[in-house]
């Protein structure tokens, strides 16, 4: 397993950052993922534009987390340096770069309309039932709780998102049932949404 410092290749001052090479990597993309990335290349005049969709593919292939290895594989496949792709990945809140999220990621909107319609009551109830704060994962690895900004479906405030699904309006009274329902879901929410997002990029004959 390469270390992060291997991946960022601290070289001489005149070296342009290079893409990570397979010797440092264990490439994990499935054939399907490689084919999808190839189709995406045809959508843009520059390969670099595939970085965001490439990261979505990687987030799916690497079980919902953009680990340094996952980022390195995207960098390798798109001929970018590790540092560049890492810089992009860490900018966006929907890429899980910091830590591996729990199986079910619950994102509570506490932004303006949701706040005014009682989002903090829902959030507090979730925190209490799960015994965690925003940004934390339960010990059993089942749930991660996040506070998010407006999900832009404020007509359904207070709103929460799990995977690609918007659920709302929710009240404190719905919390128990919600958690039970989520437990029965087989898929990891971060993998599920990444896969759906990859799919909408692809035309009927590409998927």
């Amino acid at each position: 397993m390469p270390t992060v410092s291997d991946l960022i290749q601290l070289g001489s001052r005149n070296d342009r950052p290079k893409r990570p090479e397979p010797a440092d990597l264990q490439l994990k993309f499935s054939d399907k993922a490689v084919a999808q990335l190839d189709s995406l290349r045809g959508h843009y005049p520059e390969e670099k534009a595939c970085v965001l969709p490439g990261l979505w593919i990687a987030q799916r292939e690497y079980d919902g987390t953009l680990s340094p290895e996952a980022i390195a594989e995207v960098a390798h496949r798109l001929n970018r340096s590790f540092a560049e792709v890492e810089g992009v990945a860490t900018f966006y809140s929907m890429y899980n770069t910091g830590h591996a999220p729990g199986k079910h990621v619950i994102e509570v909107c506490t932004c303006l309309s949701c706040h005014m319609c009682g989002a903090y009551r829902v959030a507090d109830s979730l925190k209490e039932k799960l015994g965690i704060e925003f940004g934390e994962t339960t010990e059993d690895g089942l749930f991660t709780l996040h506070e998010v900004e407006c999900l832009n479906a404020c007509d359904r405030a207070p709103l929460i998102q799990v995977g690609d699904e918007y659920i709302g309006p929710v009240t404190e009274a719905d919390v128990d049932k919600l958690l039970t329902d989520l437990k029965s879901r087989p898929e990891r929410s971060s993998v599920q949404i990444s896969d759906e997002i990859v799919k909408v990029h692809l035309q009927a004959d590409e998927a």
């Binding site: 965001l52 990261l55 979505w56 900018f91 966006y92 809140s93 890429y95 909408v200 990029h201």
Partner: peptide
Amino acid sequence: LHIHMGAGAY
């Protein structure tokens, strides 16, 4: 015409 998805940034 292509779809390109963002990743969470206002």
